[in-house]
Design a protein around this nucleic acid. Structure first.
Lengths: 344, 344
DNA sequence: TTGGTCTTTGACTTCGCAGTCATTTAGGCT
DNA sequence: AGCCTAAATGACTGCGAAGTCAAAGACCAA
């Protein structure tokens, strides 16, 4: 009672239907099958029809692995992202994935625990011979050079190459924080606090510095504490800042929305400060909870669709023509005037 | 002025360092290089050292594509997820990805616009010869059969095979909704409304039916409307239900947290109903915003870590031994008694 | 030293497909 | 019918690594 699979010629075949199988069934050569599946190849319509029919009957799908080996095009793009749990990135990821899919490119996902954990995954990125990568994590100069040496096109998302020119898509931190700071200052706030991100976060530092610099421009020095981009850090940061300022804090700038939201909740429910009457709070990103009734956060919304669109376009361009020079695309965020801060 | 790349023998080489290159440099055969990179192969320690050194000098990384072709193991797992923007799935995705990574498996991500859009991506799943798949989207019987025919191990996440036995990991809807319904009923609620999910959503239907059935058990018939799992649907659903019940609604069961949160905001800020005094609202999932101060949602928290752990374990098992029979693992969620509902 | 066993090693083949090239066939024109 | 061009087709090779097998060393005992 040997369990040989029957030579069932009508439907499937467990595994490994190859172009040869299809060729045999359609009475053509393997080359013909290959051509029938490529776009502008020279195949007689009748032949192609027979091949497609045979392929369908056998459940044949070209082996992308084998294709990749011979064409040196895996049609794979690596997406390296640090904190998927940060509310902002899922949206980016979904957008990127869907856009890339539309262009026939598949996504190899690498999710990092911390922003600086890139090294561990790079080996895998090389091994899979990805055609390109979108990275929203911190890359060292060496790592950037490695991409370039290996000829893997790279687009950085919300960070720029430090020291090395690299293609990148960013939301302008300076512009964004300036709008917030100016608005707050003009509305009469004087005692500022800033909740930044972890020291290894690029955007965290960018935004915090932008805010600090703009405040300095107004002759104001702010208190600064670090958070971890999450809800809890917001509340904790606020409490620390209240202590540091003897409760006089009247403007809180958080480098992302999640911390701003945490701070709002703490201000209202724990500390008992009225937002925005006694304390103005601002965020950054424009994640969906920011617009919820309970928060109505004043923040800078990143133009995610345009940014992902740009990132994908830039990456695909560079996959087609690897020698295109680096370009930085800086998008202005939109000031969302919510009810968490008194502005202007 | 031909741009031949120099035969720089010390560091990198733009692209395509092969095992032959390493072999030549180390003065051994290609076979030896292959062995040096596999776990329990028979290589003299000294030889391996020389090979590793040569590989490092050349920046060699084994070509996973070529490995996949010959070994018929891509070390790729497809993750098919419907709505990444739904707050709940990002967490699941991050967990799955990191766990799989730890086992040397890479993630090929497929993000769907709607839960029933699977068909379009299946072709790609087959082409990449993935070793397995985790699916959180609706699969038809034919599609389930296709996985089985192609010998691709499959684990469903939060849904079961309809008609076909398939390995799956779920959070128990019946148990969860029962706890909520019983609690609400015993606390004296009488006029129930339910906000379900889109008709093509598995979990949406599951949970809604669970709630409806349990209410029927108590002799209560509830009003039912559909939402789209998002914040806006929550508010809209609540308004519809208020109309349907002439404003007498005193218990609202939402099949996910996001809609519950939307409903809470609408109840408090638009309709002017006190939550939970005049209206109790429950959710499902236990996403992070549910625990925020402003909401303190009464909901069922899915044990995400245990569930993803189980999913990964089951999948890897089945990749090793494809003939393991289907198993369903049903996890009880934890009742999170927040302040959005009067229970017991 | 010889024979035997166990370990290391390299030559060669294979995986599934794309592309090159030579050959065949069809089509158009006189 | 004859000739020429263009389209269609098949034989064959190679992408990069793994595994098979046989040959070569290493090591030990007699």
């Amino acid at each position: 009672m040997a369990k040989k699979k029957p030579l069932d010629q009508t439907t499937q075949e467990k595994t490994g239907v190859t172009s040869y199988d299809v060729a045999r069934r359609a009475g053509v050569s393997q080359s013909a099958v290959s051509r029938a599946f490529r776009k502008g190849a020279s195949v007689a319509p009748a032949t192609r029809a027979r091949i497609v029919e045979a392929a369908q009957a056998l459940g044949y799908e070209p082996n992308a692995i084998a294709q990749g080996l011979i064409t040196k095009r895996s049609n794979l793009v690596a997406i390296i992202i640090s904190n998927l749990t940060n509310l902002y990135y899922p949206e980016v990821l979904a957008e990127l994935t869907q856009r890339l899919s539309q262009h026939g490119v598949r996504v190899l996902l690498f999710s990092l625990a911390a922003e600086s954990d890139v090294e561990e995954v790079l080996g895998q990125v090389w091994r899979y011979r990805v055609d390109g990568a979108v990275v929203a994590a911190r890359l060292s100069t060496d790592q950037l050079v490695a991409f370039s040496n290996r000829g893997v096109p790279l687009v950085l998302y919300n960070r720029v190459g430090e020291g090395v020119p690299v293609a990148s898509v960013c939301c302008d931190s300076d512009l964004g924080e300036r709008a917030l700071v100016d608005g707050l200052v003009q509305a009469g706030h004087r005692c500022f606090g800033i909740i930044g991100g972890p020291a290894d976060s690029y955007v965290g530092e960018e935004r915090a510095n932008a805010a600090i610099n703009r405040l300095a421009h107004h002759g104001i020095q702010a208190q600064f504490v670090r958070g971890r981009f999450d809800y809890e850090s917001g509340g904790a940061g606020l409490r620390t800042l209240m202590d540091l300022t003897d409760g006089k804090l009247d403007a809180l700038i958080c480098v992302n929305d999640l911390m701003a939201i945490g701070a709002m909740d703490t201000a209202r429910n724990i500390i008992g400060k009225k937002v925005p009457n006694e304390l103005s709070i601002t965020g950054f990103d424009g994640v969906s909870p920011a617009t919820w009734e309970a928060y109505q956060l004043t923040t800078i919304r990143q133009p995610v669709r345009r940014m992902t669109q740009a990132a994908v376009a830039m990456l695909l361009e560079r996959i087609e023509s690897p020698d295109i020079s680096p370009e930085q695309r800086l998008f202005a965020g939109e000031l969302l005037s919510g009810r968490s801060a008194r502005l202007l």
